[in-house]
Design a protein around this nucleic acid. Structure first.
Length: 812
RNA sequence: GGGCGAAUGGCGGAAUUGGUAGACGCGCUAGACUCAAAAUCUGGUUCCCGCGAGGGAGUGAGGGUUCGAUUCCCUCUUCGCCCACCA
């Protein structure tokens, strides 16, 4: 071999790795320290791997190989998240079944991943649409059902008119379907939910325990959206001219509102209900009925995007009044769409004096505005609705109290009268999990002739997805499963029933897969408790998506299954690396329609090889930042690997040869080992590659000794495993991760910089010991002609020699 | 509107606890090899002044703390992401 031929080297080593099952994880109980690393498993699209996958998978691979070379027992599995709309839409269009398209796509993905030389334990591949997998997804559902955390509720749901399916909150982006971009609507349907809100507090609190990027933690905190406040009951009068209702009269309806500002209750001059609020019909008086009905209908019909975009306030008066429990005065009850049924109680007490939205509404409809908090003097707040803190006014016995203190006092006062209580409310809603789609995991329940729900017994799992001819959902809101007439019938306890035709949100399938990796072929349980106890929680998770959805759901399931005794930990992922995107060379997102997609397989096959592609994607920039593909820069990485190859297989005479034991040579080697090792520990992949490049440049000058090449090949292996393996074979050694010794880090002379008043004036060569001898260092610095020039005979007032900084600062 | 983050040469980026700003790569440039080109190798490359030694300026803008600030603090500008009538 006389030149670097990546394609030849790579196919050679890929065959060896496959034949020897080189990356099989050690057994459960293996005494070596374990490391479990994984990427967010991909949806295997027909287009195959893209450069974003390569970045994501390579980060995991570098870490897996780094840990393995350090003698750890590494689990680095791989799987496919295969349910979802693309395969189903493809089936609707082409008639090719999702099952068959998925099989083809998986084969393609596997082949491509192998071509990248990933250190994957291929014996642990999982696929969420494999019945052997989804029977356990169904088992998970049944556990949640048994515990009362999977329930049905009829409510208004996001509905995508194009995909003909319900969407979760997380799948609606600015009022549009996340998949097809169509404007979503609201539709009243009976849906399945998981009660994630039961875990809201813990999901929030235990974010402090995980080593995740602050950005992601903040997004989850905002999503959960904990608000402390109070619920307050307002007794209704049916009409203004009736005598004020007796607050203790149990026959008068109650409107319960949620507020974070109970201190402003004396300023509550009207109530507002969401259009969907169940009491609206009852409260509407005959004179207002026509207007109220018209408003409600319009609000419900309005697409969500219209309701959000139109920020001018609209609303109608119901004709009824309620008694403000603080003032005893009747206040009008309005209906307006700026109040959301899904949050709090769907009703608010409006305090226009101190809330921007209520203020706008009051202005528009000429409702009374009452000030109950005094703006402190010197406040530069110019809003006419002061929403800060201050002293209470117009608030009866609470006048003069600070608003911060009044909150608690007023709630206690209302509570004593039985009309108010402290309340914590979350912005997060329960997780809507039913999907009116064919290509998903069937929800394992059936309905008897009275419509009662019956879970499918565990011994009848899996509920298999039936084959159908036509994948089109029908327009009644039911999935194509409804077309499998025979499949629909099921007998439970001798009674004939009808199966559920909804399938589970794909996020359910990915909410437990990390534990499946521990025992992927277990036919008796979702996961083997011993195996999970050994491998989990996951040490490092790498991905660039799903900041809220998937990463919140998997935490929820983890806590649930821990409570059920199935898991011995409450957080599934210790450390999260959230990688950035790779954009097209023009800086824009890669997309087929723009024609700017870089195909990683083409990069490999063009002659660069997988090692160059892998190393380039690690070198492209900090892993957590977006980067633009640079078609020229990848050549620089290829040249670097080519130089590594040349040093090992075809070395030239060095220009400035160094002896094998020269301190400068040892220093370069040990510095490189230290730099690459510490950089990998802090996930600074780009600078680790830079350090290797620097080392190779050095070896080109000085010539490479065997020890240099061994260190180089071992350090290079996580990035460019094929080339490194070829080098290690030539060098007749293994890939044990090298260690550095502090004593070799410094060459015989170090460079010390001299500053005068903080400005660099000279550089001196000195022995390292001199750094501990301030007087001599000072003398040496003062002797430098350029330093003398700048001192200009002035006396030196202070000499600063910082520890470990190779620097002298003379202050005059 | 709220929250979070970022801004460094022609470009991507580096500088781990405040201590030599610009590592490494791209690009550009000069040279070696070659009939020539490619490939490869060697040198140069923040800007300004200077033949040079060297000097001055410089990390979005302005101020502050410090012997010393890309790093810490304050004010502002621009950009990005997330949430967005959540009471």
């Amino acid at each position: 071999m006389d030149r670097y031929d990546p394609l030849k080297i790579e196919s050679k080593w890929q065959k060896i790795w496959a034949d020897t099952e080189a990356f099989k994880a050690g057994p459960v109980g293996d005494p070596r320290p374990k490391k479990f690393v994984a990427e967010m498993f991909p949806y295997p699209s027909g287009a195959g791997l893209h450069v974003g996958h390569v970045r994501n998978f390579t980060i995991v691979d570098v870490l897996a190989r780094f840990y393995a070379q350090q003698g750890m027992n590494v689990l680095r599995p791989f799987g496919y998240d295969t349910f979802g709309l693309p395969a189903e839409n493809y089936a609707i269009k082409t008639g090719i079944s999702p099952q068959s398209a998925t099989t083809t796509n998986i084969q393609n993905f596997r082949k491509q991943a192998q071509k990248l030389g990933y250190a994957i334990d291929w014996s642990r591949e999982i696929n969420t649409s494999d019945p052997e997998y989804y029977r356990w997804t169904q088992w998970c559902f049944l556990q949640l059902y048994k515990a009362g955390l999977a329930y049905q509720k009829e409510s208004y749901q996001w509905w995508c008119p194009v995909d003909q399916t319900v969407l979760a909150n997380e799948q609606v982006e600015n009022g549009h379907c996340w998949r097809c971009g169509a404007e979503v609507e609201k539709k009243k349907m009976k849906q399945w939910f998981f009660k994630i809100t039961d875990y809201a507090d813990e999901l929030l609190a235990s974010l402090d325990e995980v080593e995740w990027p602050e950005k992601i933690k903040t997004m989850q905190k905002n999503w959960i959206g904990r608000s402390e406040g109070a619920e307050i009951d307002f007794r209704v009068q049916v009409a203004a001219d009736e005598p004020a209702a007796n607050p203790s009269d149990p026959s008068a309806p109650l409107i319960t509102v949620f507020t974070t500002r109970p201190d402003t209750i004396f300023g509550a001059t009207f109530l507002v209900l969401a259009p969907e609020h169940p009491l609206v019909a009852q409260l509407t008086t005959p004179g207002t009925r026509a207007k109220v009905d018209q408003y409600r209908e319009a609000a419900l019909k309005k697409s969500e995007i219209e309701r959000q975009e139109n920020k001018t306030k609209t609303g109608v008066f119901t004709g009824s009044y309620a008694i403000n429990p603080a003032t005893g005065e009747p206040i009008p009850i309005w209906v307006a769409d700026y109040v959301l049924m899904g949050y709090g109680t769907g009703a608010i007490m409006a305090v226009p004096g101190h809330d921007e939205r209520d203020f706008e509404f009051a202005e528009k409809f000429d409702l009374p505005i009452k000030q109950v908090i005094e703006k402190p003097e010197g406040s530069d707040d110019t809003d006419r609705y002061y929403h800060g803190e201050g002293e209470l006014v117009n608030s009866g016995q609470f006048n003069g109290t600070r608003s911060e203190d009044a909150r608690e006092q007023i709630v206690a006062w209302l509570n004593a009268q039985g009309v108010g209580r402290s309340k914590v409310t979350y912005r997060m809603r329960d997780w809507l999990i039913s999907r009116q789609r064919y290509w998903g995991c069937p929800i394992p329940v059936a309905y008897d002739k009275n419509g009662q729900v019956h879970p499918i017994p565990e011994d009848q799992l899996p509920v298999l997805i039936p084959e159908v001819d036509d994948y089109q959902p029908d327009h009644t809101g039911r999935s194509a499963l409804a077309k499998a007439k025979d499949w629909l019938k099921v007998t439970i306890d001798g009674e004939e029933m009808t199966r559920e035709t909804d399938t589970l949100d794909g996020y359910a399938c990915s909410s437990w897969y990390l534990w499946r990796y521990a025992s992927p072929h277990d036919r008796s349980a979702a996961w083997d408790p011993e195996a999970v106890k050994y491998w989990s929680p996951l040490d490092v998770y790498v991905g660039g998506d799903h900041a809220v959805a998937h990463l919140l759901y998997i935490r929820f399931w983890c806590k649930f299954f821990a409570d059920q005794g199935y898991l011995p930990f409450r957080e599934p992922i210790k450390k999260l690396l959230y990688n950035g995107y790779i954009n097209a060379p023009d800086g824009k997102k890669m997309s087929k329609s723009k024609g700017n997609v870089i195909d990683p397989l083409e990069v490999i096959d063009s002659g660069y090889g997988a090692d160059t592609l892998r190393t380039y994607e690690m070198f492209i920039g900090p892993y957590d930042q977006d980067a633009a593909w640079d078609t020229k820069a990848i050549g620089g990485v290829y040249r670097f690997l080519n130089r590594c190859w040349t040093l090992c297989f075809n070395p030239a005479e060095p220009a400035q040869p160094l002896a094998a034991d020269d301190p400068a040579r040892l220093a370069a080697r040990h510095q490189t080992i230290k730099k690459v090792t510490t950089d990998l520990h802090r996930n600074s992949f780009n600078t680790a590659v830079a350090a290797l490049m620097e080392y190779v440049n050095q070896l080109y000058k000085t010539g490479a000794e065997t020890d240099d090449l061994v260190a180089l090949a071992r350090l290079l292996k996580p990035f460019a495993p094929h080339l490194a393996s070829e080098m290690l074979e030539q060098l007749e050694t293994d890939d044990t991760w090298p260690t550095w010794e502090e004593q070799y880090l410094e060459a015989q002379l170090v460079e010390v910089v001299v500053q005068v008043n903080g400005k660099l004036r000279a550089k001196l060569q000195a022995s390292p010991e001199l750094l501990d001898q301030p007087d001599e260092l000072r003398a040496l610095a003062l002797a430098d002609p350029n330093v003398q020039r700048f001192l200009a005979d002035r006396p030196v007032e202070k000499v600063i020699i910082p520890r470990g900084a190779k620097l002298v600062n003379l202050v005059v």
